[in-house]
Design a protein around this nucleic acid. Structure first.
Length: 579
RNA sequence: GCGCCUGUAGCUCAGCUGGAUAGAGCACCUGGCUUCGAACCAGGUGGUCGGGAGUUCGAAUCUCUCCAGGCGCGCCA
């Protein structure tokens, strides 16, 4: 009997397929149906085998045979295979494969190709992920952190499986908010008193800092002060009136606006950089141009959109978004001639798709979910398919400290900035907890837990597993001169098998995490892997084992260490060699 | 009222494209360090998977309904 060199999983799949065709005469369509529904996995309990499949139960339905009959026939194909210690039929028709110790170890040598095989089936696409995109009105707050961590992790995951991914930040530099920021800076530059400073203006200290770089002549200062006299009661109307007045001094207005934008984007970029998030592209809303310019992207997109799916009513121009399930139609151009936020988005999404991406992913706060229908309508109205857009929602994160929910209002300033959180717990820990729960569900972020070095801190549990192996690796190399590069025959105790089982689950977990856009699954994978490592470590002393065993143990542990590192990197987190 | 999300152990949560006895951590009880890192491990207590009905060989997972909570429903962004 010849030794087998392929990985056990590929042997299993090959034999089962051959048997389905030869013994049951399954045609290619039937085989395809069966394969689509059947699963080959590593069971949670070793008692159910090292590999297990439901394929007999799935085939039973397709072939009109009983699951047990199918299973019995299928396992005949393995009679000559030396890789298996035994194969059993269990429960309602599971086939459980038990590997020999040698083939168990051999799997780890095949680990990389197993992963490659899994990834190979994915069709590569060009993807644009747009996220954060916070208004450039101040530093990022903790709410933005979750979107940033999520978007960046998705980029890494999608790239890892072979997609061509670009990340982009959409800068709303053309709207009312930017005007208010500009006005706020100008008023601070003119040293308007706190009492007179408008309530709807931006209050933060950073506004004063930026204002200090703006030089204003005394004549201009008087004019600025004029702008805050005789204002309407309503604070929103008041700020709008101030903006209108200030815009009359177009030189200083434009200068202030451009300095303000540059400085605030600087703050945002620095927050992101501290958080290890780097965007490929920064897209400025202003680059879409104005509705008044015939050849602007905004104008062209709106002309097309309104022509295809719009109409005029009450002096305004509307998009017929109800055709795509929206509650009501939406205004694109107001009756006063100004465009709405949606209008910019029509042009922006057209622009993104015109750049040729196969898929757009937008990451939005969950409070924007009502916006999805109209943006889909918008995309269809400019000649693209709404299926090219995928909107992923991120729920708000509540911050807790010592069991108390932290208020996150701008005014209170107690705990608000992302930068402050990163400073407090570190970028890696912050990212870890942001990603620890499904993005579209509420997250309670416990700052004291993240800071603590206690055993309830999952972050440390995982890092500790990595650091322990790193430390062992050093000792092993010192004692033996080199690290093992392959496996040898030897013992394969249960504690080691447990690690191997989790490692063999890696490709499935990666694919699952990518297909569902859920990086958090990887955190729980890492927990399971770390647990197996800690258990092994407590049970078996590698340095005292017989040399062939020690070499095998080290080989498996190094693979585990590598997988932890690789997986943490996919989440944007660095693995530690020392705690 | 309509739409989206959520309800799993005392607490924080995994698991949800149907699969074997529902899993972790914390808390509580018991045990394990003179040698590879005890930020660790082993064992124990603890669950009608919000309630009910349906689909089928099989449901925490799919469907319906009810209950409870969160969010969203602007010519704001």
């Amino acid at each position: 009997m010849l030794a087998e060199h392929n990985s056990p999983l590929s042997i299993i799949k090959t034999n089962v397929l051959k048997s389905l065709e030869c013994s049951f005469g399954a045609d290619s369509k039937q085989v395809e149906t069966i394969l689509k529904k059947s699963i080959f996995n590593t069971p949670d309990e070793l008692i159910n085998g090292h590999w297990s499949s439901n394929i007999a139960m799935v085939s039973a339905g397709v072939l009109k045979r009983s699951p047990h009959d199918v299973a019995k026939e299928l396992i005949k194909a393995f009679a000559d295979s030396p890789s298996f210690e035994r194969i059993e039929i269990a429960g309602p028709g599971f086939i459980n494969f038990y590997l020999t110790e040698n083939s168990l170890l051999r799997q780890i040598e095949h680990h990389d190709e197993y992963l490659k095989e899994a990834i190979n089936d994915i069709e590569s696409r060009t993807i644009l992920i747009e996220f954060v995109s916070a208004n450039p009105t101040g530093p990022l707050h903790v709410g933005h952190g979750r979107g940033a961590a999520f978007g960046d992790a998705l980029k890494r995951l999608l790239s890892f499986v072979g997609h061509d991914v670009t990340t982009e930040y959409y800068v709303n530099d053309a709207g009312r908010q930017m005007d208010i920021v500009t006005a706020s800076i100008l008023l601070r530059a003119a040293e308007v008193s706190d009492i007179d400073f408008p309530h709807a203006g931006y209050q933060g200290e950073y506004i004063k800092t930026i204002a200090s770089s703006i030089i204003i002549e005394s004549g201009t200062r008087n004019k600025i002060e004029e702008s805050i006299k005789n204002l309407p009661e309503d604070k929103d109307e008041a700020i709008d009136k101030i903006c209108i007045e200030l815009k009359k001094h177009s030189d200083i207005w434009q200068q202030t606006k451009s300095v303000g934008l540059e400085k605030i984007l600087g703050l945002i970029k620095s927050d992101l950089s501290e958080f290890n998030v780097i965007f490929d592209e920064w897209f400025f809303e202003s680059s879409l141009g104005s509705i008044d310019e015939d050849d602007s992207k905004l104008r062209q997109a709106l002309d097309l959109s309104i022509n295809e799916a719009g109409y005029e009513k009450d002096g305004a121009y509307w998009l017929r978004s109800t055709n795509h399930g929206d509650d009501k139609d939406r205004v694109l151009i107001r009756k006063d001639g100004r465009v709405t936020y949606l209008a910019s988005d029509v042009a922006y999404h057209k622009e993104k798709l015109d750049r040729g991406f196969d898929q757009l992913i937008n990451i939005w706060g969950a409070d924007h979910h009502g916006y999805i229908k109209r943006i889909e309508a918008a995309i269809e109205s400019v000649g693209h398919s709404k299926s090219s857009l995928m909107v992923l929602l991120v729920q708000f994160a509540n911050l807790f400290e010592d069991g108390q929910k932290l208020k996150m209002s701008t005014r209170s300033g107690t705990f608000y900035d992302l930068g402050k959180l990163v400073e407090l717990v570190g970028a890696d820990v912050a990212r870890f907890y942001y990603l620890s729960k499904q993005a579209d569900q509420h997250l309670d972020f416990d700052v004291s837990l993240a800071k603590s070095e206690s055993k309830e801190n999952l972050y440390f549990y995982i890092q500790y597993a990595h650091a322990r192996i790193a430390s062992l690796e050093k000792k092993y190399e010192e004692a033996n001169g080199s690290l093992p590069s392959k496996t040898d025959s030897g013992n394969c105790p249960d504690a080691l098998v447990a690690i191997i089982q989790v490692l063999m689950n890696f490709p499935v977990n990666i694919l699952n995490s990518v297909e569902r856009y859920q990086p958090h699954l990887l955190i729980y994978y890492l927990r399971d892997l770390s647990q197996a490592i800690h258990q092994f470590y407590n049970e078996i002393n590698v340095m005292k084992a017989a040399s062939n065993d020690a070499s095998n143990y080290m080989f498996v542990l190094l693979k585990a260490k590598n997988i932890i590192k690789q997986t943490l990197n996919l989440l944007g987190i660095e693995a530690k060699n020392k705690m």
